[in-house]
Amino acid sequence: MKPKPYMNPYLAGVLLGLLLLATIYITGRGLGASGAFKSLIVAITNMIAPNHASEAMFFKEYNASNPQGPMINWLVFEVIGVVIGAFFSGVLANRVGLKFEKGPRATNTARIITAIIGGLLFGYGSQLGRGCTSGSALSGMAVMSFGGIITMFAIFGSGYALAYFFRKLWLK
């Protein structure tokens, strides 16, 4: 079966905005994503290298501020929800299935390496910038946060500035 077309972007935007508004009204916080990665890596480190986790500053601080454990965390539950919601939407629209997406000129090896390196940079940057596109840029914009909006401009500005150098990855 052919995949169904995507939703009208403005309609999706309004729905996402209302969801974000509801999130702020109910919980007082915005949406997020990268924080769940942090919880996960702290949980893994606690499990396989407990000595390191109790010594290294980052893990020590995180564990001290999360006495219930790194996985009992709002963002962890939210991201589990994202997995369920996205899968459900994919099923409805016939888009589920193992697939490897890349630009028309990019080799498989190049895409594998760049996907990992891109993730690595994003993961690192999200910690430095205290939030990613969801937690800092989108949620920051909703509450008109100065830092959030600055980070948003930095993300998209740097994306545009570097786009030319990585055009072979994506364009014909």
Binding site: G118, G129, T133, A154, F156, G157, S158, G159, A163, F166
Partner: peptide, 11 residues
């Protein structure tokens, strides 16, 4: 942080 994220985004 934002600049690094932007690089991650395009790569």
């Amino acid at each position: 942080g934002g600049l690094v994220m932007g690089a991650g985004f395009i790569i």
